[in-house]
Design a protein around this nucleic acid. Structure first.
Lengths: 112, 112
DNA sequence: TAGGCATATGATAAAGTTATCATATAGACT
DNA sequence: AGTCTATATGATAACTTTATCATATGCCTA
């Protein structure tokens, strides 16, 4: 039986984990990287997002262990952690399809 | 191959799904409900959170399909969707343990 | 139907998050 | 070294989310 402090600690990590996923920019990036590794510039081109926006969010994803980087000359190639993230994302789809309509009507979270 | 619109639609649902998880209050509630179903008052007592705060967040969790309610006289008993949510939460623990330190140092997301 | 308990809801100020702009760093090539 | 290209970082205004307060609804029992 873990102590209360440990429970709260774990909750906080859960929260960080989910927040990393809960942003449109980061999700777009994750979806792209599911297909293949990409550089920052490539992500910018494919999404239309500004470079700075992409870099900031990649930094977040890297911190959270979602993506790995390999320096390649002047470029940095980002790829998903396939062992943990890809199976997780796949699993979510099931729940999301089931509760599609309800999710859309959750007043607490904005739809933008 | 899904259309671009469908991909964005799915992303949006993913985002809603994760936002539901990414809040301290809601995670505390989820952790409690993993053990057994509880009424609003019981959740308030166990967490120390205000009744209104708990109700608002339960509403969100219900919309997202995380919890179910059964009216029981004057009380409403909330329980987790054990088929989808409990396995998902278990799966997260693995990733979270692996990336504990990094999650804690993600500057984008506040640690509060 | 009156009163009490359990829960829900609406409005809003405070707190947190995001995109953007401007600027910095770092590698490659001359 | 100087320049170009790729990426990272810091500050901040705009936006989103949260907790809280006040109040409303709904069920029960007398």
């Amino acid at each position: 039986m873990p102590k209360l402090q440990q429970i709260h600690q774990m909750d906080n990590l859960h929260r960080l984990f989910f927040k990393a996923f809960s942003n449109y920019t980061r999700l777009e990036i994750i979806q792209l990287l599911r297909k293949k590794p990409l550089t920052v510039t490539e992500i910018c081109e494919k999404t239309g997002f500004e470079q700075s926006r992409v870099s900031h969010n990649l930094r977040c994803l890297e911190h959270c262990g979602f993506v790995k980087v390999t320096q390649n000359g002047n470029f940095r190639e980002y790829s998903l952690d396939e062992e943990t993230i890809i199976p997780i994302v796949d699993l979510f789809d099931k729940h999301i399809r089931k509760y599609k309509e309800r999710l859309e009507n959750c007043g607490v979270i904005k739809d933008g």
